[in-house]
Write a protein that binds this DNA or RNA. Structure first.
Length: 398
DNA sequence: AAGCCCTTCAACCGCCTGAGA
DNA sequence: ATCTCAGGCGGTTGAAGGGCT
């Protein structure tokens, strides 16, 4: 219990690392791996506590770290994942290859949080600050349901992050047990964990259960009594991270929950440890059990809007970051808002200009009339879910 | 040039969790 | 069952640097 006493030792150096110390640490890890962090400093000839060494290695010296300015896409990823996960920086970092949790946390606190605040968006809830305008009508209920989805996905992301950590642990254990000294590459770039074949929006699976199955390809037009969802080409998640920084192509995969569970276990973890299989299997079961009573809410949520969700409209919610549209928000044409998407609002560099030029109408998106707020949120969460669906394939981790 | 303020980010602190004795 | 310890995480701090007056 309690703190590790290693840092309490007198005579241990604190503060900024010198190049000499860095070199010592690098040389040692290159040669021996880090093994026990606690024992490392004395072995490496460093007057530092193990924690300090670990931090220095993880946040600075590791060769697979990307440093420097965050790209627009990375910013978007952080904002979206933060909306889902909150301040779970390590979980967020698993979806941002080569970025450390510390770096992401710093970037959030120094850049993104301020930007959102400046725009009148609460950086904690990711909602416009005067959210009190929403009443207990269908819209707020819909928003609440979207929050449900976010929570589900949040739980899933956390579980995946845990799997990543476990996998790293296993890899490092395996590496440490080898007779040959591990290369820094092996130490810091673990084998990818078992692929998770179904990167689908789990929250929608029970709904699919209700709608029936048999979606195999082509243009899919799924209809419920009051809503319509259109999907293009492949139902299976496909993420278009265009080379030019173009963002996500929205896809939602509909897979029957029982079979997807089966696939997950049989295909995704066929070569992994039984514990991992069990872990994920249990998680999936728990997840889908929890879904069983919420699918009705899901349907209600969807019934609350008559908007057609097309792959194109979803896609447009996350693209054209640099293309700023000057919409007239008074014309009741929600499509404009839908197409722009909440995330784009967050990321748009010309926010101030918008607020000024759209005086009155521009306030809608910020203050949120119920309808527009819901539309914005829908795209916001869709954008997040698209990201979630796609990120692992883009990530070195997955 | 000097002083002040603000921003950034590396590093530390303290707590939590899980493994092992 | 309890305790100890290592590793990990998130919050916070403070030195350094840049901008402004």
């Amino acid at each position: 219990m309690g703190r590790s006493p290693c840092c309490d030792k007198v005579g241990l150096k604190k503060g900024p690392w010198t190049p000499e110390e860095d070199q010592k640490l690098l040389d040692y890890i290159k040669e021996h791996g880090h093994g026990s962090w606690r024992a490392l400093p004395s072995k490496a000839g460093l007057q530092r506590c193990g924690k300090s060494c670990r931090l220095r290695w993880i946040n600075y010296l590791r060769p697979d770290i990307k440093r420097g300015k965050f790209s627009l896409q990375e910013e978007q990823t952080i904002i979206q994942l933060h909306a889902l996960l909150g301040n779970r920086w390590s979980a967020i970092a698993t979806h941002l290859p080569k970025r450390t949790d510390n770096e992401i946390k710093n970037y959030w606190n120094t850049h993104l949080k301020k930007r959102l605040t400046k725009m009148g968006i609460d950086p904690v809830t990711h909602k416009p600050k005067n959210d009190a305008l929403l009443t207990a009508d269908g819209h707020s209920k819909s928003a609440a349901n979207l929050s449900h989805i976010a929570q589900w996905e949040s739980a899933r992301l956390e579980a995946e992050a845990r799997l990543v950590r476990e996998s790293r642990l296993r890899t490092s254990t395996t590496t440490a047990s080898t007779t040959n000294p591990p290369s820094p590459h092996l130490l810091t770039k673990p084998e990818p964990p078992p692929a998770i074949p179904s990167r689908s929006l789990d929250a929608l699976k029970p709904w699919n259960h209700g709608l029936g199955r048999g979606i195999t390809g082509g243009d899919h037009h799924l209809e419920s009594p009051t809503s319509t969802l259109t999907f293009s080409e492949n139902v299976r998640t496909v993420m278009g991270t265009g080379s030019g920084g173009e963002n996500s192509i929205a896809m939602i995969e509909f897979v029957g929950s029982s079979s997807s569970c089966h696939e997950w276990k049989e295909e995704g973890f066929g070569n992994s440890s039984s514990q991992l299989q069990e872990d994920h299997h249990q998680y999936k079961e728990g997840f889908e059990n929890s879904m069983s009573f919420t699918s009705h809410e899901m349907t209600l949520s969807i019934e609350a809007t008559t908007t057609t969700w097309t792959s194109e409209s979803l896609r447009s919610s996350t693209r054209d970051h640099h293309h700023h549209h000057h919409h007239n928000h008074n014309n009741n044409n929600n499509n404009d808002i839908v197409e722009e998407g909440f995330t784009n609002l967050l990321l748009n560099n010309n926010v101030d200009e918008r607020n000024h030029s759209d005086a009155g109408g521009g306030e809608e998106s910020e203050n949120g009339s119920g309808s527009d707020y819901y539309e914005d949120n829908k795209n916001y969460w869709n954008s997040i879910l698209n990201l979630v669906n796609s990120s692992p394939s883009d990530s070195s981790i997955f």
